[in-house]
Design a protein around this nucleic acid. Structure first.
Length: 150
DNA sequence: GCCAACGTTGGC
DNA sequence: GCCAACGTTGGC
């Protein structure tokens, strides 16, 4: 089992929105590194749900992988923002999983707090300089440590 | 709204 | 294959 962190802008799709719908196809990832991480996901993998580009960025909830990998349908839809004319149905370029709601944290574990814990957390893609990955791996130890801050 | 970081595109 | 231009992310 692997652990993950997934970013979402709360104005676009918040933890409350995920709670409301229960599960959501994680469409629109158009970064190869993030896609490759998603390809490694298995049903049941825990996900830290992170709010980015907002007043208080941080981990706000827990989700989990609830589907196997399948091609992102938006890449074939010309009207979609995520349309990729170079991708062929017989050889899809972009893949996704469905993300299911588990629970909201009692409070936000802020990016500021995570930075303060960087010694304890060790190497962590989220805290790397200029990091822009929307899907990134978390070790079991990091996952546990982050949730202990709740 | 600004701007640093960095991935992608496209001319050569 | 190089690299300048451009677009996007995301913290502040």
């Amino acid at each position: 089992m692997n652990h993950w962190l997934m970013k979402s802008e709360p104005d676009e799709f918040s933890i409350d929105a995920l709670k409301k719908v229960g599960r959501e196809p994680w469409s629109g990832v158009r970064n190869y590194q993030a896609r490759n991480f998603m390809k490694a996901m298995k049903v049941g993998d825990p996900i830290l749900f992170y709010h980015s580009s907002c007043a208080v960025p941080g981990v706000v909830g827990i989700a989990e992988v609830v589907s196997d990998l399948y091609p992102d349908p938006t890449q074939f839809k010309p009207k979609s923002d995520y349309y990729d004319p170079a991708s062929k149905p017989e050889e899809p370029r972009w893949w996704l999983v469905d993300v299911g709601f588990k629970r909201k944290l009692k409070r936000v574990i802020t990016l500021e707090q995570l930075k303060a814990e960087s010694d304890a957390l060790g190497e962590f893609a989220l805290l790397n300089r200029g990091n822009r990955l929307s899907v990134l791996p978390v070790t079991a130890a990091q996952y546990k440590h982050i949730l202990s801050l709740e």
